[in-house]
Structure formats: structure tokens, C-alpha cells
């Protein structure tokens, strides 16, 4: 457990900076986490990706495949990596307030 402080707000996070309590998440929290990753302001595409991930996690309990993100958002794969330089897991899923996925990510 660690504390992540962004612009004066403090969050309980795991060692990798993923929210310890995914349910405190809202749009403001998402924007702040994105900022801590160097995404100063989230554009429409960022939001679209984050909302798809969040919805999927709320319904199925896990992060969606990147295929689902591409197909539902209409954003091409390579662009997803440009929008979230840390990738869909450590980048987008963290902004979406999910717990860290298992495996080599």
C-alpha cells in the first residue's frame, strides 16, 4: 500500500499506483491519474477508451481485451499506444480506476 498525491488530493494505491479502492473512482480521479502519467488533458478518445474499460470491468470484473477497446471505440491499435504511452494496462486501466491486471504488465 502506498499513497499517491496528485494536485493536493491523496489516494490509497497499490505499489504500482493502481487505486486500492476502485469504487472511489470518478471523472475527476481519472483526469488526475492521467495527469500523473503526463496526459495533461484527456481528449475525447482518451475518455472513450477509459469508459469502455470501466464499463467492461463493472460488468465482467476484468479489463477488456484490447480488441474490444479498438472495436468499440473505433480507434486503431497503434493509436491506443500513442494515447496511453504506458499501454492499455498500466496506462488506460489505471486511469479507469481498475486494480492492476495479473501477468507481465
Amino acid at each position: 500500500m502506498a499513497i499517491l498525491e496528485i494536485e493536493g488530493r491523496k489516494f490509497d494505491v497499490d505499489g504500482d499506483g493502481f487505486l486500492s479502492d476502485p469504487y472511489i473512482w470518478d471523472d475527476d480521479v481519472a483526469s488526475l491519474i492521467a495527469k500523473s502519467d503526463g496526459i495533461d488533458s484527456m481528449n475525447e478518445k482518451h475518455w472513450s477508451i477509459v469508459n469502455i474499460i470501466r464499463k467492461h470491468w463493472e460488468e465482467k470484473g476484468m479489463a477488456p481485451m484490447v480488441r474490444t477497446i479498438c472495436q468499440e471505440s473505433g480507434i486503431r491499435l497503434r493509436e491506443i499506444y500513442e494515447l496511453f504511452p504506458l499501454g492499455p494496462a498500466r496506462g488506460a486501466c489505471r486511469v479507469a480506476g481498475l486494480p492492476k491486471p495479473d501477468g507481465c504488465v
Binding site: M65, V66, A89
Partner: peptide, 11 residues
């Protein structure tokens, strides 16, 4: 495969 390929990094 490494599962991170199909899940997040399929290039």
C-alpha cells in the same frame, strides 16, 4: 504466446 500479447499488445 505470452498472454499479454492477445490481451493488450497483439502487434
Amino acid at each position: 504466446l505470452n498472454p499479454r500479447e492477445p490481451k493488450f499488445f497483439p502487434l
